[in-house]
Design a protein around this nucleic acid. Sequence first.
DNA 1: TCTAGCACTCTGGGCCATCGAGTGCTAGAA
DNA 2: TTCTAGCACTCGATGGCCCAGAGTGCTAGA
Lengths: 349, 349
Amino acid sequence: MSTEQRGELGPRKMAVLRAVVEEYVRTGEPVGSETVTEHQSLGVSSATIRNEMAALEELGYLTHPHTSAGRAPTDLGYRRYVDMLPPGRLRETQRRAIADFFRQTAHDMEEVLLGATRLLSTLTQYAGLAVPWPTAEDRIVRAELIELGSHLMLLVVGEHGRVYKAYAARPEDLHPDAPRSASEQLSALSGLTLSEGAERAAAMASEGGPGERALLALVGRALLDVRLRAEEEHVLVSGAGNLAAELASWRMETVRRLLEAIERESEVLSLLRQASVAEDLSVTIGGEHPSTELWDAAVVAAPYRSGEISLGSIGIVGPTRMDYLTAMTAVRAVARRLSDLATELGAQQ
Amino acid sequence: MSTEQRGELGPRKMAVLRAVVEEYVRTGEPVGSETVTEHQSLGVSSATIRNEMAALEELGYLTHPHTSAGRAPTDLGYRRYVDMLPPGRLRETQRRAIADFFRQTAHDMEEVLLGATRLLSTLTQYAGLAVPWPTAEDRIVRAELIELGSHLMLLVVGEHGRVYKAYAARPEDLHPDAPRSASEQLSALSGLTLSEGAERAAAMASEGGPGERALLALVGRALLDVRLRAEEEHVLVSGAGNLAAELASWRMETVRRLLEAIERESEVLSLLRQASVAEDLSVTIGGEHPSTELWDAAVVAAPYRSGEISLGSIGIVGPTRMDYLTAMTAVRAVARRLSDLATELGAQQ
DNA sequence: TCTAGCACTCTGGGCCATCGAGTGCTAGAA
DNA sequence: TTCTAGCACTCGATGGCCCAGAGTGCTAGA
């Protein structure tokens, strides 16, 4: 059994594949054997390269738009390329952009995340994405009931400064002191998770005095509502316009479907969720995506963590014809800095 | 001086202009005199229409891509068309979509707004926009200091349930009771605007005991910070993908620049800010926009109010070749419902 | 003032020849 | 065995050409 059949390419085939991918990404034109010989210093003639390219095509890594055209990578070719890619280094300007961003950043993780997607979209010229995992089991630091005219607002502050709100109509027969006394009782919820808090409030309602009973029951329901909404995930996006830019090669319809898929969130969400279990980077390319909307796109994502706990994923979407090296390097760097920040904040809090 | 020179078109010219616009919007093809005669029942021949069209071109309402092509509206032509357009009626499905949305809506205005842009984008197939005006003069309902590990968080609740956060490092020598006692003092800020609150906190700092002094000064600074950030405006967008869809006629570059301009916010912001002073609808078309990015786009926007106070603007962006009647009707209807909701909430609170 | 008729103009599409990039193959060199 | 030089071949892209058709502008007459 030859090494090729076992899926291991010889070093020269690798070099050729790499040259084709990089040249194709650069120019967008199918790459001919001549170009590869000029570009790479392999010390072999174009005829040899041609043979190698034919072999790579046979193996499914390259295609041929038509007989007399050069080769372009298939999704599988990109995959192979990505898998062999050694970690890259950031350009100085990029390094500085990242450092600047994390130097002047706020404490609010959600805000930082949005900024980080923007950072990624300018670093890579693709669209930046982020998904913070939902925090259904966030712990309550404070909970209180606030009167706003004819409504009551339940305000809950979670462990990391996250704020949750829920509204309810103010009961008709509310005693003026009731919100205050209920709020005092709510201090008992500190340290509980949202779900535990909801249960506890319900329990307190069945024990409490008649005046508080109604209010506490209401708080219990509101907390359940908060917990439900805290479970919802959503994707932060920046630089969607870049997708229309870089992708002059795409048809308008493709761009539309991609933008729609991103806005609909679900596809991207499940993708980034997968990324979060990955150790490091996760790259998915074209046909590897389950849904057709993303068949012309590639997603590079990485989890960010506080210590060992995965908090979410951050990454980019772009065309399959992507500068993977730059994209991967940038995503990796940003994810790492984000993890550092989250760990630092988490450890302190 | 003829009526035409005074800028008033005869009724037949109006009818022709209208027919050309609507046919062009429908098909995207330049419209010939024959088509207009078939389509409209004006009872005149195509030759007469040709004369009218030539006159309309002379007046700058129509153009001619080339000699043997039909006419397409200019920006000025669209403007004229929009100005003469009688208010339209919603289709039953649209009416229902709007009613459904406002029936099941939450109390949180920001959340409702985002939903409303989504609603508009599905109603019109263009991109939905909204800008809530900043609330630098929001009044403080509650302000408190919360300990989060090594940080302190200042949490401020505004009049309409808006929540503001600011973080500060926890002073080294903080007395365990200090945050609590400071929080108690902060109840004195209720009813003040954010700026007044900042001043007041600073004043309290200079009067208070040595333990509280530092904390209150910190609160004053944090409130200033909150106020600054509350002044920032930003645009909510939904359905950006629609822009790539409807606009198959556009070049990719145009779409990109438009999407970028939207994401950059500033252009759109100033546009919607103008809309907010308008009584009712404001429509800006193509070259009427100051910045070139929007020269192929039209924006339909309307303010929404609580009582007499303008709270922000909501609207859509699409191509100049837009179904203005549908767009205007939808924006008007949604803005009205939004005003009703805001008024209702505002009156209660 | 409107209409019928007609000559004129211009674009878009189909067709064709040409060009050239790039291939695949074969035969010979290393 | 592996590589290379050479060469015939393929096929899309490009540009010229022509024609049909849509739509105009104008003129003369109702």
